[in-house]
Structures are given as structure tokens and as C-alpha cells.
Design a protein around this nucleic acid. Sequence first.
DNA 1: GGCCGCTAGTTGACGCGTCAACCAGTGCGC
DNA 2: GCGCACTGGTTGACGCGTCAACTAGCGGCC
Lengths: 155, 155
Amino acid sequence: MNATPRWLTSEQKAAWDSFIRMQEKLIGKLTRRLQDDSGMSASEYIVLAKLTETEDGRMRFMDLAKLVEWEKSRMSHQVRRMAKRGLVAKEECPDDGRGAFIVATPAGHRAIEDAAPMHVEHVRRLFTDALTPEELAVLARISDRVLAHMERQPD
Amino acid sequence: MNATPRWLTSEQKAAWDSFIRMQEKLIGKLTRRLQDDSGMSASEYIVLAKLTETEDGRMRFMDLAKLVEWEKSRMSHQVRRMAKRGLVAKEECPDDGRGAFIVATPAGHRAIEDAAPMHVEHVRRLFTDALTPEELAVLARISDRVLAHMERQPD
DNA sequence: GGCCGCTAGTTGACGCGTCAACCAGTGCGC
DNA sequence: GCGCACTGGTTGACGCGTCAACTAGCGGCC
């Protein structure tokens, strides 16, 4: 212990800084846009998106949480807030006394249908339009490599 | 208005999904690690990092906010919390009656010096080690392109 | 020197995310 | 059928981030 730390090379640091800066600005702009255009947070958007992609706009609480890779407590808080806003509703589950279904309400369906086209347009405008198809493919490959690499690491 | 929305192609959507997933997982792991290893949030880390990179560990409030591209209210809240924890202190500015200097305390210096080597190690372990130097360079170039593209867009 | 618009910084309310503690129902072993 | 570990889900406290409203000092124009 107490070995002199191995810092990043200047190329590595530059790459890291660019990546972090880009990602922060991009996500920031998108969430602000979503909020301004549709009065919806990114979390609300993704919950509604996943729910309404199903057959009947309904999903078991834990299935939903696993699908978006959230902790159950995060999902619980989120669902409570969205239920208060009338975007989703909780229904009890006949098969499992503990369980709950989360359902997108009509207002929820309307909200995501209104929001989605604009959101996609912003993703296009800010992100995909910046890159050639080849660059986009390279970025996808790199992202998958990092993801795969992380899977192999502890934690 | 009401034109049928132009969705992303499946390649674009796949690239977007991979990027988002990677970035969320990576940032998530790093912040959790930082918290566990050093009891510090990412925000605290960056504030201390920028502060201690200066000559005297001191910076004008607004200069600091601009440097890390935060809103002043965000910085104000952050500094208040960090002052409460004893990581920084506020000093008044002789030249400008409104102004404030933010100073890293000895505890602040110690905290970042302890945290930095481990943090860098995790960045290396989770990110730079996943990629070849060429891939890293490509990612940097792509990030810079997206950044530059965003600068040219409204908002 | 008095007004006015600007910049510096704070505050409060509210949504978000994490952690840890908790309750309740399930299902399995005996 | 009883006990017990596990899963499903909630809750409360707290740090974080945004927005909007606010205070206060500065600087320029008349």
C-alpha cells in the first residue's frame, strides 16, 4: 500500500474528460428538453415507455424494476409519485398476496404518446445527427465492449 | 404538426441504447465506489479536485461554478453541505462586497488526496482497461464531435 | 448623488436516488 | 401445520439538482 498512484496518461485523461463532458451535457440537455416540452422527467418517461410497450400496459412491480435495472426502493418511490400524478395506478395481484401490478393509466398513455416523438427528435438532433453511421456503429461497439468488460469485473 | 414521427433506425436505436446503458452503469459503479471507498460523493470529489488544483486551494465562487459548468444555486447548495462537513470554508472577498472565496480546508485536501488514487484506479479498471488506445482515441474524437455539434444547436 | 440594470450569491420547495430498516406473504423442510 | 428463510414491496431520512424568487453590492449614466 501507499505505492505512488498510477495516474492516467494524458491521452487517457483527455478521452475520459471528453467522454464525461459529452455525456453530462447530452443527458442534461435531453432531460431539460423533455421536462420543458412534455412536463415529464426522464424517469417518468422510461417507466411509461416500458409499461406501454407491453400488451396491456401493465407489469409486475419487480419485473419492471428488473427491466430498467433499478433498485426496488427507487421504483417504489417513483411509482408512488407517478400514481399521485395520475400517470400510473397500482393494482393488487391475485396470484401473489404481496405483489402488485403497475398499470399505465389513459393519461399515462397519452403523456408518453405526446412526448415520444419530440424526445426522439431531440435525440436525433443532438446525438445521431452529429455522427456518421460508421461513427455511430463504432460507438455502439465501444459501448458494448465497456459493458461487457464491466460485467466481468467485481461489483 | 402532427406529422408521423420519424423514429430512429434500428441501428441508431441500438447504438443509442448501448451508449445510454453503458454510461449509466459506468457512472453508477464509479459513484458507488467513490462513496464506499472514500465516503465522498462525485460532486464533492470534483469540487475538491478543482479547488486543490489551484495555487492556494481557493477560488471565487462563480469562477468555480463556471469551471465545472454548474448553476450557481447548485454550487451554493453544494458548498453549504461541504462547509457543514468541514471540507471547504467560505471567506469573504475584499475586492467585492458580494463575493466569496471557497477554500479547501486541510481536511478537504486530505480527503481528495486519499480518494484520488483509488478513484483513478477504478476509472482505469472499469473504463480505460476495456479499450485499446485506438478505441479510446476514437471515443474521444466522437465525444468531441458530439460536443461540438451540441454547441452549434439551439439551447 | 441617485437611479437602474447587472452580477454574486442564497434560499425554499420539490422531485429524484440511495441506504437501511421494516412488514407481509410465500414456500419449503421437517 | 410450524418455523424459517426468502421474495415483494414500503417507508423515512438524507444528500443531490432544478427552478424561481429573493437580497445585496457594483458600476454606469444622468
